[in-house]
Structures are given as structure tokens and as C-alpha cells.
Computed example of a mutant assay.
Amino acid sequence: MSNYTRRDRIWNQALKKALADESFSLNQIQRDVSEPVSSHILKDTLSSMVDQGWLSKEQSEPVVWVPGSQIPGEKNGEEIHEQHTSPKKVTEVTSLVEGKEYVGVVDRFSTSGNANVRLPEHMDRTFVNLGPIYESSEGESVVFRFLETGWGECLTEKYTYDGYSPRDGMKHSEGPASSSSQTSSTSNSSPHRSHSNHSSNNSFTELNNRNDLINGPM
């Protein structure tokens, strides 16, 4: 049996989507690959496919890849570009269609850390739940794909993280803390521990001196 590399799996999934005339974001292809892969490997592999004409990269928000010139079909070009770079605002539609992309504003975060996009009053639900994206998105416009039963997948990559899933169930504030902040935290806490140890040693020494005065040297 052949051993497939991570790049092989990325290539396979991306080519399947291209042949099906589908566009996809980095998060989508990462989720479809059957094992964890880094963003660097994903981007490098997709760039190779763009260079060889299998894919075309659209500079939209979020960035999406669409079928390239090597893929036969009628949707290579302006039709796909228009379809995937101009999602409608939730205020411009009467209802949301599963699988379609929309623009909405993150109105609030639930107590469990899930971002909620408020919908207009004429719709049959109040919010779309985007799951645990970064809290800096509150009050900002995001692009999302509407999923079933009121869920949505955030496609604005600056508010998501590697492995993001709407039903992740884990709260994310601003992403991993930087090494400098961790170093600062460690250096700030060290003097307190040192001072505490020094104080304990002084107290122990004073206690021994008092015992010597009372009982005499042992």
C-alpha cells in the first residue's frame, strides 16, 4: 500500500474541490485533510498548485482558492470570482441558505465564548453561532458560511486559528501568548519568590538566635 505524504493529501483534497468547481479557504482544506498539517505546508502546497495552473488564488477576504486554467469547465474566471468575493450582508437577504456565504457583525459573545452574529428581525432566528473565534471580532464585520441549525463557519481568517471549528467548544481570546509576554511574566514573578525565600530564611535565623539567648548554646 502506498504511503501518502501530507502534501499528497492536501493536493488530493484541493484537486477534488477544483474538479467539483468549488472554492475553498485555508481553514476548509485543513479540516478536510485526514491528519494535522501546518499552515506553512498548506500554503506552500497550494502555491505549487497555483504555479502549475490547477488552482487560482483570489485576493479576497478571506483568501480563497478556485479552479485554475488546467481544470476544464465553464466556471473558471469571472463567474466564480463574483460568486465567492461578493457575499451578501445578512441585512440584504430575506433568509439564510445553507452553504451560502454572508457578511454579518459579531454582536456579542456567549458565556461559553461563542461569537454570535445578530440577524434581522424578519428572520426565523435571532443569531448565527460562529463558535469560539477571537474576541477581538466583537463589533466587527465577518464573512461566514451558514451551516445547519443556526451554526456558521467564520471565514475571516484573522479572527480564527489553526484547527478552528464552530463546534470546538473552547474559548479563544487573542490566540497564544507571545514568548516575550511569557518571559515577562516569569521574570516579574521571580523576584517575589526570591523575596519570600529570603524572608523565610531571616525568620528562621532570628528564631535560632532567641533560643540561644534563652537556653544557652547547645
Rank of each mutant, 00 (worst) to 15 (best):
E74Q: 09
P132Q: 13
R9K: 14
I80K: 06
S69C: 07
S190Y: 06
E61Y: 10
H195W: 13
T205Y: 09
E138V: 10
D44M: 05
H40T: 07
E140I: 07
R118L: 12
F204E: 06
S60E: 02
S60V: 09
S141N: 11
T183G: 04
E78F: 14
P67D: 15
I80D: 05
N116W: 12
S110I: 04
A18I: 01
D44N: 11
D124A: 09
N201F: 10
S199G: 02
E157T: 13
S110C: 01
V66D: 00
M49W: 07
S38G: 14
E22Y: 04
Q28M: 12
V33R: 05
Y159N: 06
E98S: 03
M1C: 08
S165D: 13
E58W: 13
S187Y: 03
S179R: 10
N129A: 03
E121P: 00
I133R: 03
N215D: 02
E174T: 05
E138S: 07
W151N: 04
R210K: 13
L15C: 03
G139K: 07
K16V: 14
R108E: 07
C154V: 02
L119P: 02
Y134P: 00
N201C: 04
S48N: 09
L19K: 10
H195T: 06
V37F: 10
S184P: 00
G53M: 10
P67R: 14
N208Y: 09
D51Y: 08
P120I: 10
V66C: 08
V142S: 06
V142M: 05
P36C: 08
E135K: 13
L155Q: 04
S48Y: 12
E101I: 02
D212K: 14
K16E: 11
V90C: 05
N3E: 14
R31T: 00
L130K: 01
D44F: 05
Q70N: 09
D51F: 06
E79S: 14
P62K: 06
V90E: 04
H122N: 12
S203T: 09
P67G: 13
F24Q: 03
H172M: 07
L96V: 08
L96G: 02
P72W: 10
